[in-house]
């Protein structure tokens, strides 16, 4: 998406320039919005770039000592970096899996079988947006404290311990799944809106497909880009989540960054910058995976048909 906006913007502005030569009066009237557009873009760019650049300068430049990349070279060997990053990535993968396993069957089912339940599902899925993480974590802590007290004589006691296992805290996956639900819902809902699910299901059933076959071979392939979108949003959320993890006493990536900032301020900022880049890279990768499904479909016929090559870029945008 981000890559498309700059290419799309010059096109409408570029064509009138050639056309407007004869009428000089209109030129000024048209140039004004272009100037404004540039100004707004520059302001927005500054807003994002200045902090990033200052951070970067802070990490490499020490007053009086010159430029050094020690903050970056030290990251990999820093204590806890690999472990916390791997933990975060693992949590993200588990959260994505769980959230999709919950949301996809629910949304498809509601669309096919019980359209009246749709508002209910939407409300349930959007609810986490209005619950602040701090409130969520308070609730989770209460349950975690209450559980062992009251269930100490039952097998569930072990479950409570296992859920809080330091090396892979399942309780965080559960909490993150709740937090991710609104984003997953929005993304999947948009994807489902784009296809006529009931008709496709009926068409596939008419071709002899069982219900499971229809879901796996017809519905999911058409949701590929929105599945990728949901996954990315969840990944970004889990990588950057601090409140819950920190208050529950776990040390995934975000918590680790904050904890090193006290002792090694430069490195902490350097890691933040890097994590930003990593997130962007993952975002790009995932959105590529999503759009490739969409753009790969128009691609094959392009060499054979001339009209096909004209239509494919336009349709790829949507």
């Amino acid at each position: 998406m981000a890559a498309l906006t700059p290419t799309a913007a010059p096109a409408p502005g570029g064509t009138p320039r050639r056309a407007r030569d004869p009428k000089a009066v209109r030129v000024r009237a048209r140039r004004r919005p272009r100037v404004w557009r540039g100004a707004v873009l520059a302001l927005a760019g500054l807003y994002f770039l200045v902090p990033l650049l200052s951070s970067f300068v802070f990490t490499v430049h020490t007053p009086g000592q010159g430029v050094s990349f020690a903050a970056y070279t030290g990251i990999l060997s820093a204590e806890g970096f690999t472990r916390s990053l791997l933990l975060s990535l693992g949590l993200a993968a588990a959260t994505i899996l769980l959230a999709l396993l919950l949301a996809v069957p629910a949304l498809v089912g509601v669309r096919l079988g019980a359209p009246r339940l749709r508002p209910l599902v939407e409300i349930v899925c959007m609810l986490p947006l209005v619950v602040p993480p701090i409130a969520l974590v308070t609730g989770v802590t209460t349950v975690l404290r209450w559980g062992p007290d009251h269930l100490s004589r039952t097998p569930l006691y072990q479950t409570f311990l296992a859920v809080q296992n330091e090396s892979f805290p399942v309780v965080l996956v559960l909490a993150y799944t709740v937090l991710a639900l609104p984003f997953v819902y929005r993304s999947l809902d948009a994807g489902l809106r784009a296809v006529d699910v009931p008709t496709l299901v009926e068409a596939a059933r008419n071709c002899g497909a069982s219900r499971l076959y229809v879901i796996l071979r017809v519905i999911l392939p058409n949701l590929r880009s929105s599945l990728a979108g949901a996954s990315f949003l969840t990944l970004a959320l889990v990588l950057g989540e601090y409140t819950i993890a920190s208050l529950l006493g776990f040390r995934p990536f975000a918590v680790w960054i904050v904890s090193v900032s006290g002792a090694q301020a430069r490195m902490s900022v350097a890691v933040s910058l890097l994590s930003l880049l990593i997130t962007w890279a993952l975002l790009l990768l995932l959105s590529r995976a999503g759009t490739r499904a969409a753009s790969a479909t128009p691609a094959p016929p392009a060499p054979s048909g001339t009209s096909a090559s004209l239509t494919s870029p336009a349709s790829g945008k949507e």
Binding site: D196, E202, C207, P300
Partner: peptide, 30 residues
């Protein structure tokens, strides 16, 4: 899915992720 009746729908019902050939062959693939 076990009835021997082919249907053409009012709205466009082709599978968007398959090309024309795979759409036609969908039932055979099943």
């Amino acid at each position: 899915n076990r009835r021997d009746a082919g249907m053409v729908f009012q709205s466009y019902s082709l599978f968007p992720h398959l090309n024309a050939r795979d759409n036609v062959a969908f039932g055979l693939r099943v």
